[in-house]
Design a protein around this nucleic acid. Structure first.
Lengths: 116, 116
DNA sequence: TTAATATATGAATAACTGTTCATATGTTAG
DNA sequence: CTAACATATGAACAGTTATTCATATATTAA
């Protein structure tokens, strides 16, 4: 009977989904990473850093806003492993943490283009 | 003189960053997409849908929470083009909208694994 | 048509988050 | 050491968002 078959099939999918669900901790860490890159100001910072490392003042120039706001956002990005930083004299140079970040940014843009 | 050279180089990077910055509208749409997948509950829904389309009740089983809360989240995911849906009788079956979503999920997991 | 099931939604509250302002820390030059 | 510069941070306010509750819509069965 068709209804039963599909019901069984769907229920099986639901079971698989529940069994393969990552742990709450993993889900929360992934969510935190996405949340970190989900605010326009922070996203602009990442787009700016695509072209190489920048000090805070140059990031402020590139994305607009106050030094304080950008600095707060940079801290959040760093805490979530999205950017890394190194000191050079008085300046602290920020850059994208790894190639995953670059890839995700490009995928997001591709996704956007598709929707147009 | 080293300081001047580096300063020029950095300033050049800042200029490039500003020139290649996507428009505010684009940045906001990308940010909205990431925001859509940045809450643990919604992320769980996406992980559940990796295994195929599911009706709302099965999604509720897979991710926990109330039917109402899940339904609200599904609406948000759909409004941002992260999932799509089709009706089949009484049920509405949800699935991931496109391969970009799948790819981003996998990248996020890879990023997470690297940090351990 | 009526009852039952599946899904969606409006309103309200509670929790969260971004920005601002003032100030602190750390580095270099004099 | 002191002044100047670059960056970071704590607290508070404003805006945003997730959840809950009650209810509405839509489909199917009888």
């Amino acid at each position: 009977m068709e209804t039963c078959d599909r019901e069984a099939e769907h229920h099986c999918a639901a079971l698989r989904a529940r069994e393969n669900m990552p742990s709450d901790g993993e889900v929360e860490r992934v969510a935190a990473s996405f949340k970190a890159i989900s605010e326009p100001c922070r996203l602009k910072i990442l787009f700016a850093l695509r072209h190489g490392e920048l000090c805070v003042l140059h990031i402020v120039e590139a994305v607009g806003g106050t030094q304080s706001a950008v600095s707060h956002q940079l801290r959040l990005l760093k805490a979530n492993g999205i950017v890394k930083s190194r000191r050079e004299g008085q300046n602290i140079l920020y850059s994208l943490a790894d190639e995953h970040v670059v890839a995700v940014l490009e995928l997001a843009c591709a996704h956007l283009k598709c929707k147009i």
